[in-house]
């Protein structure tokens, strides 16, 4: 990383600090009602207290678990189904119209149905997250394997590669950029749906904690929970960037 890039990041972090300081000043001066907008100091102490004495760490772990398991389910199903539909015209003919009907369904609308079918437990949470997060992955994989460079398929044909090898060595690798883009999008969706289902289902995740804190007008706790959700999202995006950089080295080579 170049020196100027680091300098800009430092400057940008400084800007963030200035914003936080201004917020602190405003809170101290009671520009907003402290009931609505707690100052950064109170949010920090709520975070600290919740993490060391309260159950914030356990709730964060629960939420992370929901998100990751749901996301993983969605990834496996999405990539597998996307590859099958992308590679087999027959499977595409049978399955694609049904999926096109299901896809625009807003994932949150499935929550009441999932609650009715599965109750308020873990399986409902995971089912809703997986259902919502599966689409970007499915569409990405499908698009990826379908847009393989035709010349590469000719190369494979000329080399007499069997279909299984064409899928493994040509179709799936060339779909990797699309699959990664799908992973990124579905991570966002998974985090949103994790928060929502936890709000709806109660339980011991962050979503329920935030909603309860909101009902009790404990705004510092709400902000603390929201901050952790944001950090989870950011950590996920960063991990994906690292994965992307590793998997797409060949693209950055030029």
């Amino acid at each position: 990383m170049s020196v100027s890039r680091l300098a800009w990041i430092a400057a940008s972090a400084l800007v963030f600090c200035v914003i936080v300081a201004a917020w602190q000043q405003a809170a101290d001066a009671r520009v907003f009602s402290p009931v609505f907008f707690p100052g950064p100091d109170r949010i920090w102490s709520a975070l600290h207290r919740g993490w060391t004495q309260g159950d914030l760490a356990a709730r964060t772990a629960t939420t992370l678990g929901h998100m990751l398991v749901g996301w993983l389910l969605a990834s496996v199903v999405g990539v597998a189904l996307g590859a099958v539909i992308g590679l087999s015209p027959l499977a595409s003919a049978y399955l694609k119209p049904t999926l096109e009907l299901l896809r625009p369904l807003p994932a949150s609308a499935t929550i009441p149905v999932a609650i009715a079918l599965l109750g308020l437990g873990e399986s409902m949470v995971l089912a809703v997250i997986a259902f919502g997060a599966v689409w970007p992955m499915l569409v990405g994989t499908m698009h990826g394997v379908q847009s393989v460079e035709p010349r590469l398929l000719e190369v494979a044909h000329a080399l007499g590669m069997p279909r299984r090898r064409v899928i493994r060595d040509i179709a799936l690798p060339s779909a990797i950029p699309d699959i990664l883009a799908g992973l990124r999008l579905s991570l966002t969706v998974a985090l949103i749906l994790t928060a929502v289902t936890e709000m709806m289902a109660g339980g011991d995740g962050l979503g329920a904690a935030i909603l309860d804190a909101g009902r009790l007008m404990r705004s510092a706790n709400v902000f603390a929970g929201v901050a952790i959700l944001g950090l989870i999202g950011m950590a996920g995006a960063m991990l994906l960037s690292i994965l992307e950089a590793r998997c797409l080295r060949w693209r950055l080579a030029s």
Partner: peptide, 26 residues
């Protein structure tokens, strides 16, 4: 853009529905 980078990257990953409780209070 460069000056706002950290701020934007910190706010962007917040799931929109997580701000519902804040808005309920406000």
């Amino acid at each position: 853009d460069r000056l706002m980078e950290v701020t934007v990257e910190l706010i962007r990953p917040v799931p929109p529905v997580a701000i519902i409780p804040i808005l309920i209070i406000v």
